[in-house]
Amino acid sequence: MKLLVVDDSNIIRSRIARATLQANLTNLEIVGLARNGDEAVDICLRRKPDLVTMDLTMPGMNGIECIDALLRVAPDLRILVVSALSDKATAIEALKRGAHGYLHKPFTDARLAEALVELMDGLEERHVRYDRR
């Protein structure tokens, strides 16, 4: 299982990566750390992740636009929104667009690991389908 982390904050990207490694999740490998939406789409096409953690407030392409872009190239991608946004309406909109779950910042390592495990549930039985752009 391959994970892509999308967040404009270096601290959060490192935090998620570290927490994921420390949680020792079987079959979960981090295949990319993206700083913005464009990088995320690029890594997604090259490394073909199964899971994505997605920040909502990013410069340039925002999280919701990024979700749209990623799902266009990988319709079966599972996306976990990780945001500190107090505006629930935006987060709900992200779910409507195709995200699968939401994790509020700040989070504990255990909570992140739980969320990733929950997100991976049932994913082993299939491969994420990628469409050519």
């Binding site: 629930k88 987060a91 709900i92 195709g98 995200a99 699968h100 939401y102 994790l103 929950e118 997100l119």
Partner: peptide, 10 residues
């Protein structure tokens, strides 16, 4: 599609 336990906070 969405995971129940992962949207409770919203």
């Amino acid at each position: 599609r969405v995971k129940e336990s992962l949207v409770m906070e919203l």
